[in-house]
Amino acid sequence: MIKISNLTFGYSRKKILFQDLNLQMQEGHIYGLLGKNGAGKSTLLKNIAGLVFPQQGVCEVNGFDSSKRLPAFLQDLFFIPEEVYMPALTAAQFIKSTGHFYPAFDEKQFNQMLDEFDVPADTLLNKLSFGQQKKVIIAFGLSTNTSLLIMDEPTNGLDIPSKSQFRKIIASALTENRCIIISTHQVRDLDNLIDTVLVVHQQKIILNKSLDEISEELKFSTVATVGSDVLYAEESVRGMNTITQNTNGSYSKVDLELLFNAIINDKNTITEILNR
């Protein structure tokens, strides 16, 4: 579905953000895009959506070159930015003015999601709080039923109950024809939601693995003392959270935050194991 080939991008010729980046993403997955501040998560998403253009290489979505922004490409993609803008319209007016640009837009689905998010339907959207505006645009983006849904820091501005609703709604919106990409620096917000982890670090995608693949290779556990086989450890109130190599095929839940910190701080060992 998404094919990025030899992509080089920088906001100026001297400061390159991505160098010769290659990446493929498929339908039927929810990708979690992780990276430190300034690593280029939003920029990568913008390259995919055709909002910025690569200096070299190409980014294709469903066979369309993103940078051309053709209507056929745009009507099968919805991008939810970190900061949203809503016009001075009610939700009903907004779907009337914008919904029909997306062939698979489902009005009933949109209204149901607004109900679940507890957003008033008759208030002007620009008068809603930031969190509520975000919920409206998330509900709208999901109701467009585009094959690609990109969300840049979608949980920013959501309260705790809304984050849980968000996870539930996203999980229910995934179909085998749809690809959802969520970027965040709040790694815990993606717990129990994503099935594939992408990590952007130092101009490269250093990890692109499903959680199943990760748990096949690595074991996440909390122990009292750190043994010699530990690849990475962090102190917590319950003891030491550790990552060890999974040599006996046992299952453990992937601790995304621990994995992310391990990759960023001790990149080579962990990524070599995962990428071998």
Partner: peptide
């Protein structure tokens, strides 16, 4: 010229 408004404007499914 406004990032918040430019993203929905440019990604709206219509031609340039």
């Amino acid at each position: 010229g406004d990032k918040k408004k430019a993203i929905p404007a440019l990604t709206l499914p219509a031609s340039h």
